[in-house]
Design a protein around this nucleic acid. Structure first.
Length: 189
DNA sequence: AGCACGATGCTCT
DNA sequence: GAGCATCGTGCTT
């Protein structure tokens, strides 16, 4: 079954998309094998006004994908060794995205676990490493299965099972951006 | 369970 | 040259 969320899903206010991405299924075809994880934690990054967002200084070579159409993957490299996966949101020309921060493996768990050498997939760089996501996927469409990476509908998540809080790792970002509750995660069992 | 730290290289000023 | 939307290890409590 291959049924990616449609582009219109992503073409909405980023906080709505972020909230609704919780509980969806992140699907990766790696070496012909299907690896799937439930998305359990995300963060919203919204436009040039948001001083925590990569677009805060305008369009650059790195962040260009965020200015493009919604429903594409914005994958960037940081800390000298880590790849981060984002889903581009809102209309073309507006720079916004949702960072995928954690997944719960539900298909191909054995392979995911092996790729992680037994460690977890709760962290933005951990899940990209687990699923073999890197810069080669920057800019691909999340609405086209041929890309080898997409997001499908998953399980329903009620508000009561969601925790919000400030985004992680924005050490030098000024207020109020540093503390806005733009991180969403599913309550741990 | 929590904190400190080093790894490591790309991007933008 | 500074600054990173981080992770794993190793040490302390």
């Amino acid at each position: 079954m291959v049924n990616p969320l449609p582009r219109e899903f992503y073409n909405r206010y980023t906080l709505i998309v972020a909230r609704e991405l919780l509980g969806t299924r992140l699907v990766r075809i790696l070496d012909g094998v299907r690896l799937v994880g439930l998305i359990t934690e995300v963060e919203a990054y919204i436009g040039e006004e948001d001083l925590g967002c990569h677009a805060k200084s305008g369009k650059t070579k790195r962040n260009a994908v965020m200015y493009g159409p919604p429903g594409h993957a914005y994958v960037y490299f940081t800390y000298g060794m880590h790849w981060m996966l984002n889903a581009v949101t809102e209309q073309t020309g507006f720079s916004a995205a949702v960072l995928i921060r954690a997944i719960d493996p539900v298909e191909g768990s054995n392979i995911i676990s092996a790729r992680r050498q037994g460690r977890d997939t709760l962290g933005p760089a951990k899940l990209t490493q687990a699923l073999g996501i890197d810069g080669a996927l920057n800019g691909i469409s999340l609405c086209d299965p041929d890309s080898g990476l997409w997001i499908e509908a998953g399980i329903p998540v009620v508000d009561n099972d969601i925790l919000t809080g400030p985004r992680v790792g924005l050490f030098t970002v000024p207020e109020p951006w540093k503390s806005l509750p733009w991180r969403f995660r599913m309550r741990r069992r």
